[in-house]
Each structure stands twice: as C-alpha cells, then as structure tokens.
Design a protein around this nucleic acid. Structure first.
Length: 499
RNA sequence: GACCCCCUAGCUCAGCUGGUUAGAGCAUCUCACUUUUAAUGAGAGGGUCGAGGGUUCGAGUCCCUCGGGGGUCACCA
C-alpha cells in the first residue's frame, strides 16, 4: 500500500524505538491517578500524579519542552525537561525518544509533580515517560488562536463520518455531542426505572414488519428457510407484554426502514417506545413534558436549548392543538364533516399533488404535513388525529371519527407519537382489514395484518397509553444539531472502496 | 429516485477568460533554543490536481462517462 512520507517516517520511528529497547505497544496496565479535567478541577501544586493519553501539541525549546496530553476528559499541559527525565549521562530518552521518535497522536503515560508555570498554567513536570502506543498515521492538526478561532479544522463531512475515530480525537465538540446523547438516554432510563417500569428487549428479526407503515429491510433465515424483516417498529411486541401483565415496559429500539436518507433520516434509527397500563394519552402528555424537561436539564442544566438561532423552551406545559384546529388555522379548511371527495377538492384547491390511492386519512396527513407542521417551533402537541390515519389507536372518547392520538412537534419536526392504545380486538381487526383495503388500492405503506397480535388482544389488554420518541431527532434538538449524521456515531454511508 | 454544487500536499484552502517547473498556512524533516501555549528563528522535502476518456500546439482549468460527498425536492420518523 502507498504510504505518505509522514507515515513512512513514523513506521521508521517504530523500528528505532525497538532498537532502543522500547516496546511501542506494551501489554502492561498503566494506571493514571487523574484525568486531565479531574486534575484541573482539584489542582494544587506539588501533587504526585500520573496521566495517560495522546501526546498532542509539542513546543520544543532545546533542552525543555511543553506538550499537551489529551485524554477522554480533555487536555493537560506537560513540562518535559531533558535533565529531569534523563538523570544520568544518557540523554536519549529526551533527545531521541521524546523529540524525534514520538509524534503527535501517540499514546504516552507520564509521572510527575504538578506546578504552575510562570504564566500560571497548571502543568505536570514530567519525571518519567512511558510509550503506550505509537500512531503511524498523522492526525489532522487544527489550531485555536487567542480569539478562539479554529484554523485548519478537520471539517470534510465525508472524512469525519467515515473516520469518526479521527473526528472524535480532534473535534472536542463532537465528543460533547455524543456525551450529551448518552446523558439524554440515561436521564430517560433513570426516569422510567424510578417508576418501576421494565426495560425489555424484543425481536429485531420479525416475521411480520408491524407497528408502523414503512418499507422494511428483508432478510432470510437459512435454518428456518423463511423470510424475515428487520423491525420497522417494536410497538406490537411491547403491547403483547402489556397483555402479559407488565404494567410499564420500555425499549430503546433500533428500527430499520428501507427508505430515503437525508438530514433527518438514517436507515437505522433509535426510538424509545414506552407503554404504561391504565393510562391514557392525556396522562402521557404530562409525562412527556416532564420527561423532555429532565432530558434537557441533563444536557444544559436548564430547560432551554438553542437550535438554529431559536431558543426552544422545554419547560411544561406545552401547547395543545387539535389536528382539526391546526389545519383550520393554516389552511382555512375545516376537515370536520368533509367526506373524502370534498377533502380531495379542498386539497386540490390548495395546489397539492394528490392521487386516487390516497384515502381520507392520507389526505389529512398531507394537509397537515404540507401546510402546518413547519409552524410548530416550540414544543406543541398536535392531538386527535382522524381514525383513518391511526390504525393502532383507540377511537376518541367523545369525538366520532377521531382518535386519542398526539404527536409532539419541535422545530417543525415530529419528535414523538402517542396513543391511548386500541385494545378492542374486534375494532383492531376491522382497522387492519381497512388497511388491507388501502393496500389493495395501491397504498404500499398500509399495515400488514398480524394475526398473533390480534390473538393477544383477544386475551385482553388493559387500557394503555404508549409513546414512541425519536431519540436521534430529540438529541438533535437538545444539542443544536441540524443533521442526524451529527448525532449518529457511524451514520450510514456508501461502502468505502479501498484502492 | 430527480436537480444543483463540490473533490488540488497529512489538514485547511488559493489557483482569473486554458499558457513555462501547480502555490500558501499549518503539519513533516534538518539546525538553534530550559517557562511555551496558533511557541519562535533559519533552511528543506512532500502532489499521477477523485478515476478514465475527449477537445486542443497546450488541460487543475473546457466537454463526456464513472466514483465519492454535500445541498434541495420526493417518500418516511
């Protein structure tokens, strides 16, 4: 393979280290007494410490040098003096190893005593230096000037996503985003566990891709000689567990949909699904408000987050708007009482592209998606969806033709979808059959009938409220990112071709 | 899937209506330097300009095909 000049030099340094009796990839444990930030937080002069991490910038000034050591928490300054790491006549550890054979990016461990330099910078005066792992490829070398401006940043999205390991090393904000993602998920999990709800795992490989309307990935099991699908949702499995007697179950579900990719869609994505027995969608709204407020606090320490120049306020309560009112407000169309033909005429009047395969539910969905959705910047519950677009949702307790469903919109994007779950097995069977009719009419997103799920409902499911929250999108909202690729460690890319 | 834009050194980028040997900063290498922090000073090396074809006396630059990426739209969360 073709090596760059810098790579060849580093490989040569490896050999030279071995000649000096230094193992560039030692096996032994290295114990760091402190992390970089931990040491900075509890800094006193005269502490005996050890640190481990990557050697980053070096400023060599003859017989002494400054360097920064970067670990998972951040960076700390090292002071390396020739005569302090080489006590005897042999100065090769400094002159050869430190100055020549080590490079930016190599892992080292150091032992030494803390002090402040004359400019006041907390530093470690290195007395012992151990090579922990040599890097043979050079890292990109961004620099930050006195005004905080970053020069030569590693910014090419293709390289950053394909080599996330490099991105994480040189772009501290990237690491912060993924730490925030972990905190969001942890805050949610803590919240659910405190209430006694059970975290469960349900099948990713499903014989029927149910619980949502989407194109699945199809695979094949050899031993069973049967077609299987990667799940597009886990909803129907969690409801089976409610039938089984658990009162609250949740799962952070990796779902797979064989559809387009853009800045809010990745073929695999994460949804938190939560189902709680004896609750309804009104209860769930309050639950969501509190949940998102605590998730936001977990990231920002307060209930506000900035996104694309807009402050998003996660403090409860959130606005509640019915689907009918939302459409009426933004299009002057009152969907109440319109039949399918009248609705189609109204959509055409608004210049929308529609076709005959669209049923009433789909038409309303289009109306909302095209004309309303983008207006909801602050967290807003859109509630009471028409029954045609919600085949798994309970009919509204006092609005015929509507369901007890809400979606939560933030920054014009759907973040969560929740129901008072349909638990009437006869009604559910009819809804599935209506989906079948839509499918025959040409709607390729209509749901399949899951006979086992219907059988489960026939054994009796308590009244239940369930919700799905798009975790990737929520993390985007909470970290100020506008592309899903920035909140996925390894976003889907075309396979790389190696020459 | 459609349209638009991008791909030049390890990184970030210049490179005009085509014109000698393709440039800069950082990184790298050599030398100097014991309190620097975008360290500094002096010097040096490093490129099949995404790939392949074409037009031309001459292509990084114009045209075509392909590959990769980004953006917009459509489907979807």
């Amino acid at each position: 393979m073709q090596r760059s000049e810098q790579e060849r030099l580093r490989i040569e340094s490896l050999a030279q280290m071995r000649q000096l009796g230094i193992d560039p990839y030692p096996a032994a444990e290295f114990i760091a007494t402190h992390s970089a930030v931990g040491l900075a937080d509890r800094f006193e002069e005269g502490m005996k410490v050890t640190l481990a991490g990557r050697l980053m910038t070096r400023r060599i000034m003859g017989k002494a040098s400054f360097a920064s050591l970067q670990d998972s928490s951040g960076a700390f300054q090292l002071y390396v003096s020739r005569d302090e790491i080489c006590e005897g006549e042999d100065k090769s550890l400094y002159n050869m190893v430190f100055k020549k054979l080590l490079d930016r990016g190599d892992f080292i461990g150091v032992e030494g005593e803390t002090f402040r330099t004359k400019t006041g910078e907390p530093s470690v005066r290195v007395s012992k230096l151990t090579v922990l792992s040599k890097a043979i490829r050079p890292l990109p070398s961004p620099k930050t000037d006195d005004d905080g401006v970053v020069h030569d940043a590693f910014t090419d999205p293709e390289l950053r996503y394909r080599m996330r390991y490099v991105d994480l090393v040189v772009n501290p904000d990237v690491r912060k985003t993924f730490e925030a993602r972990s905190r969001v998920i942890q805050a949610m999990r803590d919240n659910f566990n405190a209430k006694g709800w059970l975290e469960v795992d349900t099948p990713v490989l499903q014989p029927i891709p149910g619980g949502a309307a989407a194109q699945p990935f199809i695979t094949h099991h050899n031993a069973l000689d049967s077609q299987l699908y990667l799940r597009i949702a886990n909803e129907l499995y969690l409801k089976r567990l409610i039938v089984g007697g658990f009162e609250g179950v949740y799962e952070f579900s990796r779902n797979f949909r064989n559809e387009g990719m853009d800045r809010t869609h990745n073929p695999e994505f994460t949804v938190l699904e939560l189902y709680v027995a004896y609750k309804d969608y009104l209860w769930m709204m309050v639950e969501m408000e509190n949940l998102l407020a605590s998730a936001c606090k977990a990231v920002h320490g307060k209930t506000e987050a900035e996104l694309a120049g807009e402050m998003i306020n996660f403090k409860p309560p959130y606005a509640r708007v019915t689907m009918r009112d939302a459409i009426r407000e933004h299009t002057n169309v009152d969907i109440d009482g319109l039949d399918e033909d009248e609705l189609r005429t109204a959509c055409k009047g608004l210049g929308m592209e529609i076709d005959d395969s669209m049923g009433k539910g789909k038409l309303i969905d289009e109306l909302f998606g095209e004309h309303c959705e983008r207006h909801y910047i602050q967290p807003t519950f859109i509630m009471d969806y028409p029954v045609e677009m919600s085949p798994l949702c309970k009919s509204h307790r006092d609005k015929p033709g509507y369901t007890e469903r809400f979606e939560l919109f933030i920054a014009g994007t759907e973040i969560a979808n929740a129901y008072s779950e349909l638990n009437d097995p006869i009604d559910q069977r009819e809804r599935f059959e209506a989906q079948l009719a839509l499918m025959q009419r040409g709607d390729d997103e209509a749901m399949f009938i899951d006979q086992d799920f219907l059988r489960a409902l026939e054994y009796g499911m308590p009244p239940t409220s369930g919700v799905g929250i798009g975790i990737d999108r929520l993390v985007m909202m909470l970290t100020g990112q506008t592309s899903i690729q920035e909140v996925l460690l390894f976003p889907q890319m075309r396979p790389e071709v190696f020459a």
